[in-house]
Design a protein around this nucleic acid. Structure first.
Lengths: 227, 227
DNA sequence: TATCAAATTTAGGTTCACCTAATTCCCACG
DNA sequence: CGTGGGAATTAGGTGAACCTAAATTTGATA
């Protein structure tokens, strides 16, 4: 049962951050845990516990104590709006203002709380309503529809086969800069040459070059097998 | 004597708003009064009193109780940075994202707290580092220099003479929309036909049209006499 | 020069969102 | 089937920035 005023009172920055984080964590299939949220937002677990209670009172999440949180319909709507803002901003800043994909996250992270829907829609329109952001993440439409892009990570692409990188799910500028320096960005085709067991490294060929990529990094490269 | 940590701790949104407001109010020549600041920011006088004390402790303003506030050098530097942000944002949103001069203030008001210096400089660069914003207000340079644009208001332009509107110092969308509907924007040439005494209306010719403008509104139109 | 109104400050209180320390809950393992 | 350790929550506290109500100061005016 959604709580009292499901109205238009503007959300605080914190609430926006929590909703977006819970949404993204929920993508993994299970309810988001207090600890995961705390870790993601770099807050203490008690802070998160307290905020979850408030969000539940506002009808934005459902909380079974000790079990995790899930967004309500209203919560998900607002979370997706934040995701759209973030990804449109990233796309616009890269396309029109010379940002690189590694630095753009931080700027978008601040701006997403300050922009109006109007501005976001105009930015998106100026770019021809792109479907994905510079990292390959899908951009929700203004009415809240999101494409469900499920790609296997590079670590699951079998040795010998070729794949196209479609999404790079990392925020950290350093990692992104490193990946860019190897040419590992959405659209790049790679051939898997070798993979060592026990979460060992994957060896890939990118054009003329061969690179060895650790398991953790290779997990962030989501690929579409090409044959 | 500037207080303790004049360093790089980021300013809060509130502090940014206070500094910008104090700067703009100080343009009139006297220290900004508590009441004026409170009125401008739509806050209570006690709230402003309290904040002024904190700003003084941080070395951003000088405060003589019951006398008013003035910015320190550091305070002015930070205030001018906010003014630059605001005006660059307005210029960019109008030039590149289809905003009208009446609605742009509100959007910029929120964004100015979230943008990085890098983004502002790129926006300004994309526009060729314009010297004024859509209202004709001068845009401070990245290193803090501001042109001192002093123009007489339309109410002081003598009857019979012609002038070019250079600046429109109003934020209120309704006023701006009305002025735009009469073509009264920076760059427009007007001829003063008549002026009634005791803060009475001014009659101007704009192209083929003749308009009667109340004293208050005519005070916001800053003009350069053309002959 | 006494007084009074307006401007300002002080006093005291609220909300939001965070923190650390202490407690409680849950479940896997012995 | 009892228990220990990790996850989560409760308890209690902080700072920023706001508020209203109650002093206080100032300066113009009678």
């Amino acid at each position: 049962m959604a709580a009292a005023a499901l109205g238009q009172e503007p959300l605080t920055r914190s609430v926006e951050d929590y909703l977006k984080t819970i949404y993204l964590l929920s993508q993994r299939g299970e309810p988001a845990s207090t600890n995961d949220i705390a870790h993601q937002l770099e807050l203490s677990a008690p802070s998160v516990s307290g905020m979850i209670k408030r969000l539940a009172e506002q009808g934005l999440v459902e909380h079974e104590p000790y079990k995790g949180v899930e967004l309500t319909q209203e919560g998900r709507r607002l979370a997706i709006r934040m995701v759209r803002r973030h990804r449109v901003l990233e796309a616009y800043l890269v396309a029109r203002l010379g940002y690189d994909w590694d630095g753009v996250h931080e700027e978008a992270e601040r701006l997403e709380h300050a922009v109006s829907d109007t501005l976001i829609n105009r930015m998106a329109g100026a770019l021809g309503d792109p479907q994905v952001d510079p990292h390959g993440d899908p951009i929700p439409t203004a009415d809240g529809w999101v494409e469900d892009l499920v790609f296997p990570p590079l670590v699951e692409v079998s040795v010998g086969s070729e794949a196209e990188i479609r999404r790079v799910s990392a925020d950290d500028p350093e990692r992104l800069r490193y990946l860019a320096s190897l040419g590992l960005k959405p659209g790049t085709r790679v051939t898997v040459i070798d993979r060592q067991p026990f979460r060992g490294p994957t060896t890939v060929r990118v054009g003329e070059q061969t690179y060895i990529i650790g398991h953790e990094l290779a997990s962030t490269l989501l690929c579409a097998p090409t044959h």
